[in-house]
Design a binder for these strands. Structure first.
Lengths: 222, 222
DNA sequence: ATATAATATCAAAAAATTATGAAAATTGCA
DNA sequence: TGCAATTTTCATAATTTTTTGATATTATAT
């Protein structure tokens, strides 16, 4: 997974780079939009971390140019207080954004989330006649489509990606709701309930692990 | 899990402490970097919450010194508006940081996230056909799942982690129930009983050490 | 062998956890 | 904006687990 970090401050680039290297990403650096475009042309970049405020060509312009070349996911860095209108007005194609000052861990978590999304893009998860087609974003049982709400869909996908692993409510929350969800843990229970109801004969695949959380359990030899 | 909170403001320390105690962390306090170093030397601290701005020795210096002694995860507290450069120039190895004013809930959530990473997870313990798979949070004997209650599971895991070591009821209680359990020591006996029953042919692995406690004894050469 | 101390067992009470249903809040969209 | 769908919260029911305390059993020293 190759990541391009574009920021005019070398210090920030370095810090981000250090953290990403720890996670075994391949990291490229650019100090301005023009350099970034050059790198995108020559390297097979999977994700770009782009600062908005930069001399010469700002982050928005750079993204515009890059989008013409290749469709790459972006995470934007913005200084606190930068106009949110502009931020929101732009967001076609921006996958996430992070406000400075940010915690390195937060940035890495978001990058991970996006890259994970990329890696699982279009994957299909199956168990017997239960099929989750992520590209079509639909779920079928016995070849018949099952209508799920967005959260139910995310939850099922997360379960299928992590089959046979006991997942705490906390883990589920931070992976599906985001690390910054500070609501009630019981929320998970409710969604498990509705998801189970929608899974019909497969409802028992979601096992309650008392004192722990839930587990999507499938016996491999069937 | 032992946490050291280092901040020159007693009020802030107290608030953090209150919240952490609710989560059953053991909390130590230091009002300056020097004290923090002393505590790290003498107590087995698992995580440090460190304010950056402090008199005498600031948070950065303290971290530098502590890192020489022991590699402990840090969460930094920084006042909003503290120089961005300084913040980023330093914190390789800082696991997260939180900007003041922060919500206690947020801080606790971040602490939880870091401590969770620390704890050994996903391990598998085996003895002959007795297998404890911690990731799946399940126990099997002869490839057949054995249903255990949470306490039984924790107890078995603890035994398997400490095989061939005689463990007093007191030690077992403080490790599985927590240091703040004020109940009867006989409680352990009851759980040992039910665990033995569930272990079937392996029930004799748990040996009673009269006048002392219990021991999970396995002969390595079998 | 017997007394004594420690452990094992048991079942009922207490506590904790999860499931569920419904209301309230939020979000997304026409 | 207002409607419909979704998400979240919250109270209560259902279930499971934990603890307690009484009694039985076992081990040990004399």
């Amino acid at each position: 997974m190759r990541i391009l970090v574009c920021d005019d401050e070398a210090l920030i680039r370095d810090v981000i780079k250090e953290y990403l290297l720890l996670e075994h990403y391949e990291v490229f650096e650019a100090s301005n939009g023009l350099d970034a475009i050059e790198i995108v042309k020559n390297k097979d970049i999977d994700l770009i971390v782009m600062d908005i405020m930069m001399p010469k060509m700002d982050g928005y312009q750079a993204i515009n140019e890059i989008k013409k070349i290749k469709d790459i996911p972006f995470i934007m860095l913005s200084a606190r207080g930068e106009e949110f209108d502009k931020l929101y007005g732009f967001q076609l194609g921006v996958d996430d954004y992070v406000t400075k000052p940010f915690s390195p861990k937060e940035l890495v978590a978001r990058i991970k989330a996006v890259t994970k999304r990329i890696q699982n893009e279009g994957l299909t998860f199956k168990y017997k006649t239960l099929v989750l087609d992520d590209l079509a974003h639909e779920v079928k049982i016995d070849d018949k489509q099952v209508i799920l709400t967005p959260k139910e869909y995310d939850l099922l996908k997360y379960f299928m990606q992590n089959k046979n692993i006991a997942l705490s409510r906390d883990t589920i929350l931070s992976n599906i709701w985001g690390y910054d969800f500070f609501g009630d843990e019981r929320t998970v229970d409710t969604h498990v309930k509705t998801l189970r109801n929608n899974l019909g004969k497969y409802r028992d695949l979601i096992i309650t692990v008392r004192g722990m959380g839930y587990k999507f359990e499938i016996k491999e030899n069937e």
